[in-house]
Amino acid sequence: MAGARFIVQADGGSRGNPGPAGYGAVVLDARTGEILAEAAEFIGRATNNVAEYKGLIAGLKAARALDPDARILVEMDSKLVVEQMSGRWKIKHPDMQPLAAEARGVAGRGNVEYTWIPREKNKEADRLANEAMDAGKHGRQWEPKARAAAAPVVDEPLPAAPAPRAGWAAPADLGAPTTLVFLRHGETPLTPLRQFSGSTGSDPGLSEKGVWQAERTAEALAARGTVQAVVCSPMLRTRQTAEAVARRLGLDVRIEEGLRELDFGDWEGLTFAEVMERHPDDLTAFFGSAKAKPTGSAESLTTLAHRAGQARDKILARYPGKTVLVVSHVSPIKTLVRLALGAPPDAVHRMELSAASLCAVQYYSDGNASLRLLNDTSHLR
């Protein structure tokens, strides 16, 4: 295997940041895409960044064990690690400096490159990191699962990776796509005041206007006749909105915890201006990094993306080929749209999402997604 070319994909996570943490890494043959090695470990209490660096180190060690002289392309969805290891960003945090030094020592000189990939392209490493954290939760360490033997590699061109599809229908061999129609809940008393309303605040219900919006949305969706299931966040405002639609359609409502709004911590119930006055540094950091958290919150947009992505995957697995109404909130819906587009995390700050607006994304069996609708409020006019 001398002179081999490997791809190392690595990830790490922390449930609480800091909290119970773990990492995962895979080594791929750059030519065939075959998984050559896997590594994962529960590392106890740590931050996301520490877990990500440890995942990188484990992936590099696994690659070097296969071939000390291999050329390695590291792919990670951590912009921080990629930029720091590429030498473009300074490493200021004292916890990161020794980890980066260790990674450089394992990497060697001149034959490792780093590139950022969106989270959805890093699913194997993300899966392993979560398996490691799940194992730690039960007081044990991660153990590799047996993999089926790889098919013999023949010397022929590899098929091109699936390209983003903007067509009107899925090719016949992919079957019918699963369509998720995202509905932001109707107005609450806090909505017109533009007050932060997350998952740990007062949990307001719909206002009189919000009830009207939910009913108008129900009429419109009933007229279209395409929705086959209704799933919603556990918050009161989303349940009221979902129930209004479900009654009209004759469907039940299924609750999905991962669709709840971001925890806004000490910002709950405050306006943007009030947060800017009381917590200016935290607000600036929040808009500057997906890993920054609102003051007093346990969640960042990165954390939200992880749980919302898991909720999406559960829905797709439960309702293949169907059209599902997903009633949620501003942050989860923007995040899922952003993930469908493969856009960077800060794209969520460039989207407008009105109360009771509709978005729609189609998901195909080859892993592609197509955004079909964004912030549609025509049914309210």
Rank of each mutant, 00 (worst) to 15 (best):
K209A: 14
E52K: 04
R140Y: 08
V153I: 08
M351S: 03
L259V: 01
T178Y: 07
R278C: 00
Q84R: 00
I91E: 11
V326N: 10
A311M: 07
P171K: 11
V27H: 01
A51P: 06
E257T: 09
H379C: 08
R307S: 04
L66A: 04
A150C: 02
L358R: 04
V324S: 07
L371A: 04
A242R: 07
R260C: 04
A223V: 14
V8M: 03
R127A: 07
E143Q: 14
R350T: 13
E261S: 05
P344T: 01
A176Q: 11
V245Y: 14
S289H: 09
R254P: 02
D203V: 10
P171L: 08
M351C: 07
G186Y: 15
A10I: 01
N48E: 12
D313V: 12
F272P: 04
E102W: 01
C232R: 09
E41T: 05
A25C: 04
P164Q: 11
D203W: 12
H279D: 10
G136A: 05
H379A: 13
R88L: 07
S357N: 02
E215A: 07
H349A: 11
R381F: 06
A223Q: 15
L28W: 07
L251Y: 15
D313Y: 13
R88M: 05
Y363N: 02
S207P: 08
G22P: 12
R381S: 15
R31H: 04
Y319H: 10
A220T: 15
A150M: 03
P162R: 09
A37P: 07
A292V: 05
K79G: 11
D376P: 08
L262T: 06
A220H: 15
V330R: 11
P204Q: 08
L183K: 09
R45K: 15
V8Y: 04
P162L: 10
V106T: 03
E243H: 06
A218T: 08
E261N: 06
A169Y: 02
R248Y: 13
V326D: 10
W89T: 02
A65C: 04
M1G: 03
A292I: 06
L28K: 10
D77W: 00
N49M: 02
S199K: 14
E83P: 00
A317T: 15
E274G: 10
D282L: 14
V81H: 00
E215I: 09
G258D: 14
R165Y: 11
D173L: 14
D29F: 09
A292D: 06
K90F: 06
W168K: 15
A222H: 15
H306N: 09
F287G: 05
F182K: 05
P345A: 12
S197A: 14
L304A: 03
R119G: 14
S197G: 09
V330L: 11
D313G: 04
N17I: 14
